[in-house]
Design a protein around this nucleic acid. Structure first.
Lengths: 232, 232
DNA sequence: GCAAAAGTGTTGGGAGTACACCCATGA
DNA sequence: TCATGGGTGTACTCCCAACACTTTTGC
């Protein structure tokens, strides 16, 4: 702590905002209107302000991009990325976060940034698409974090509306993991894991057959035992 | 990305360097010689230089503090901490890393910083000790990361010399988790988990009774199945 | 009745725990 | 020979995947 020389350096937050739409895992991206990487998709993000904590900055950016009420979104820090040339304009260290939310109306109402849109993760991570900066890597890391957190935390509920059926919860797992899950064993497991989901009185919400019970997210932080992906 | 105003802001790396000594989990700390927090223990760390990646900076600081060969240490990013007033002198965002290493000679040869020393984690996290800045929280998070990573990765081997006995590996688990483990079941589990450890030809290294086989770390990244802490 | 989804029962195998037991060394 | 730790065998339990089966709706 002796250096008092400050070559220009900025700290930003970038967001991997994930949701499940149309039975697929999708991420929020913004089309860049200016160089560098003009025309490419990028993750939403922005500068950390002088009086802001990192999480506060991430929450503010999230609010600006999606307009979602803060309490309906799960937000957590992912990792920081600081390769010296990751932004050609200047040294920028970014603290990436992931945000998980239920299916959102449409992001069109982006305040300043050009056009925001939901794109499937499989599209964004395929060779067909190149995101701006190092955002492909950040997205990849964020998706992997989400995938593994579904195993041992009740985080899947963050992708659901406040009240949801077991079926909807299962669809989240299937979309995020890209696997199919036995509905009957899933039902038993979820309803028996303490604190995962809390049954409500309401039933209905038909999706075809017999009415399903509605549940709310429980207060467990960790799943005992975890729900594991197949050991493929 | 429109703001070009830069109130002074610095990015540092801080290190949670962990080892197992005397059957206890210990961390490397440095006594601060100057205000603020003069006289308190702090985690080693320093500024990220203009041309350095974050991991490079962490590796450099680690080298400066411990002199360890890079390949004998597991180094990974932990999380970033950026509360506006975490350092009273100026805005500092720190990217914390954890470093796991085998029992080290002695850290005395600290280059610039005052006196470095190994202290047990239980001491540093007890109410008797107050670390400088937010380092108590960083240490707590780093230890928790290490604890949980032992469950599902072969990381425990990072705390061992290059060749080690199953017994030594078990002592790592016992020290980090603060639990006792059945030696016989542990032996079976470790030697049967694919890629965890690789037997060598050498045996010996007596610790008392029958000679034990020496192993090297395998190349597995994930443990299937994981070794779980008791569901206490 | 029939299709479709919700939810429960049953069963066989695999993994974990507890612990008896044998092996190989030094003293 | 005994003490000490290394390593294997075994029995019991529990969890989980697979799937048969019942329940409750709409058409």
């Amino acid at each position: 702590m002796t250096d008092t020389h400050h070559p220009p350096l900025a700290v930003t937050v970038d967001l991997v905002v994930l949701t499940v739409r149309e039975d697929e895992l999708q991420a929020l991206v913004i089309r860049r209107g200016e160089a560098p990487y003009k025309g490419r998709w990028a993750l939403p993000g922005g500068f950390v302000q002088p009086d802001e904590d990192l999480e506060t900055a991430a929450a503010r950016e999230l609010q600006e991009e999606t307009g979602l009420p803060r309490e309906r979104v799960h937000l957590e820090q992912l990792a920081s990325y600081g390769a010296p040339n990751r932004d050609p304009r200047m040294r920028v260290v970014t603290v990436a976060h992931i945000a998980l939310a239920a299916d959102l109306p449409v992001p069109e109402a982006g305040t300043d940034a050009a056009c925001a849109d939901w794109r499937t993760v499989s599209d964004l991570l395929s060779n067909r698409t190149k995101l701006a900066f190092d955002h492909t890597q950040i997205l990849r890391d964020g998706v992997e974090r989400a995938r593994s957190k579904l195993e041992y935390t009740p985080l899947a509920a963050a992708f659901c509306p406040r009240e949801f059926t077991i079926r909807e919860l299962r669809h989240v797992y299937e979309a995020v993991w890209g696997a199919t899950i036995d509905p009957r064993n899933f039902h038993r497991k979820v309803s028996k894991t303490p604190g995962f989901v809390i049954p409500t009185d309401s039933m209905t919400t038909r999706e075809g057959g017999r009415p399903a019970r509605l549940y709310r997210a429980g207060n467990a932080q960790l799943l005992h035992p975890p729900l594991l992906r197949g050991t493929d």
